[in-house]
Design a protein around this nucleic acid. Sequence first.
DNA 1: GTCTATAATTAGATAGAC
DNA 2: GTCTATCTAATTATAGAC
Lengths: 221, 221
Amino acid sequence: MSSTTTTRPATSTGATANRRRQARATATRTALLDAALVEFAAHGFEGASTRAIAERAGTHQPQINYHFDSKEALWRAAVDHLFARLDVTVRRHLDALPANNDRERLASEIRAFTRAVAELPELNRIMVQEATIDSDRLRWIVEQHTRPRFERLTATWRRLRRAGTVPDIDEVVLYYSLVGAASLAYVNAPEARLLSHDTMSKSFIDAHADALVILFLGSDR
Amino acid sequence: MSSTTTTRPATSTGATANRRRQARATATRTALLDAALVEFAAHGFEGASTRAIAERAGTHQPQINYHFDSKEALWRAAVDHLFARLDVTVRRHLDALPANNDRERLASEIRAFTRAVAELPELNRIMVQEATIDSDRLRWIVEQHTRPRFERLTATWRRLRRAGTVPDIDEVVLYYSLVGAASLAYVNAPEARLLSHDTMSKSFIDAHADALVILFLGSDR
DNA sequence: GTCTATAATTAGATAGAC
DNA sequence: GTCTATCTAATTATAGAC
């Protein structure tokens, strides 16, 4: 140890300093990603300022252009990060809800999805702000994230609909009705609060998840 | 007539000129309101620029501060204008759908509401962008427009729920599930188009309205 | 990698001619 | 009422010291 420090003292201290610098850099990157999610969700891509993002992350505005190439590259990295968290969150809630048959499996997926979107309101806020007008960002998010999930849900619904397990409803109608019904209470949580109800409480989320299963799959069947 | 023009020619031409100027002013105001709705819906309050709004209205940017006091005053006037159009549009669709009993009346209201939000996608786009974060604008829109409509729908649902006419679902859960299910397909219409489906077509809207009645009221009962 | 300073644009709002 | 010109402040991005 002392031999190491004596044989190459400069290199060793340089290495630990490098390690520290790199850890600090990773922390800055992560803080910027988290701050970006909040700001983009609250003000939209154009309304969010890089200064506000940097300030929320506890660092300086030029760090955004250093760690990411541009405001748009930061946005893409933040969205990737968010969808990865969605998958993890849905899976976590699914594991707690084992299912036996097709109907119970879809019921579990609806409950898990509802709990996940309640946990990650920023995701649907960003989606709804971007999906409102055609743009390069929308095209990117659709091909990267929306389409695979859209195809998976509509395929499942098509199968259950043919089997007569679910109501006779077109799959695109179903997709937007289900996603809209599951997400609006959390996207609009600040509004709901003003209307005198906290939609972020566990009791609301549980009642909401159960209600969606009843609405989309019926109470028994 | 010719006597009028000859007895007070200056006053008369001044009066018609005034009338023309006033008509032009009203046209400018209306054009600004319509342009503001599109821009605010597409980019949010902070993302929309007064220059882009004026250009879309075919006039110049300082006209906004002349006809309205500020960007925020223009936003409020545009939102008032939009909610007034919502009421007219819902009523128009309701008249076409007479109802006999409580359940049929609510079914008609769900169908009319769905068709109205499909016709006015800007309304829910603006709502979802403002309801995402607490602000003076959100508090204003909630007290002016959201709360009365919220109270009306939840009161109706409470009554039908007590009578056993509808599924046993909490009224706040119902409110956000129904509004979300009815609006997302139109709020996110550009995304839906990229996913290969035009949700603005009459056939989609009809299928959607019927599906929501089945989902929220059951297929018969 | 992080900081300060600043360049280059663009924002909302105002002044004043017509 | 409508126009051009412009003010002040805020925006994203870059340069360069450390």
